[in-house]
């Protein structure tokens, strides 16, 4: 997959590494080693091939704050999405994430909810209605997630 078909590579050349993005990143709170600045620099200096191998790109939650504060208006969230698409196709997808997607495809929910039903019963609530599994599977297939993860 040609990642630069999905992201304007020239935009990266505008980056002068001021690090306002990393300084604004909420992922920094939980994983101090991560930052969009470094991701951009690696794309420029090492090539995106090296970046997509790195599990850190999955820490981005696409909150867009970095993009909002970027003085050069680089669409950083778009970059991360493009990188993760590329990474997923190369099989670099964190185990926990692929389990969640598998679960979503099979049960219609991204987490196991049996315990949740017990809790609901305890509080006098009806069990959760069944998820529209087939519809969700169709949506996931349309996004071509099935090409990356077997479900």
């Amino acid at each position: 997959m040609k990642i630069w078909n999905f992201f304007p590579r020239e935009a990266l050349y505008e980056c002068y590494q001021c690090a306002r993005c990393t300084g604004s990143c909420p992922a920094l709170e939980v994983a101090p080693a991560y930052g969009p600045r470094e991701t951009i620099l690696k794309c420029l200096n090492l090539g995106h091939e090296a970046v997509v191998q790195d599990e850190k790109i999955w820490l981005c939650c696409t909150c867009n704050v970095c993009e909002d504060r970027c003085p050069q208006k680089i669409p950083i969230s778009d970059l991360l999405v493009a990188l993760r698409n590329s990474a997923a196709r190369r099989g670099n997808i964190p185990g926990k994430l692929s389990i969640a997607i598998e679960l979503l495809a099979k049960t219609g929910r991204s987490m196991i909810v049996h315990q949740l039903d017990e809790m609901r019963a305890h509080h006098g609530l009806d069990p959760l209605p069944p998820a529209p599994v087939e519809e969700i599977r169709q949506i996931l297939k349309k996004t071509k997630l099935n090409e990356v993860i077997d479900f």
């Binding site: 001021c18 993005c21 990393t22 300084g23 604004s24 920094l28 101090p32 930052g35």
Partner: peptide, 29 residues
Amino acid sequence: IRGIPGEIIEDINSGNLKLLGENTLLGTP
């Protein structure tokens, strides 16, 4: 320090300011 803070947070009581950012030369927040 190389790296502009992404955000400044004010402590309302003291008026002091907290600067959040990344030192790009050390690669540390």
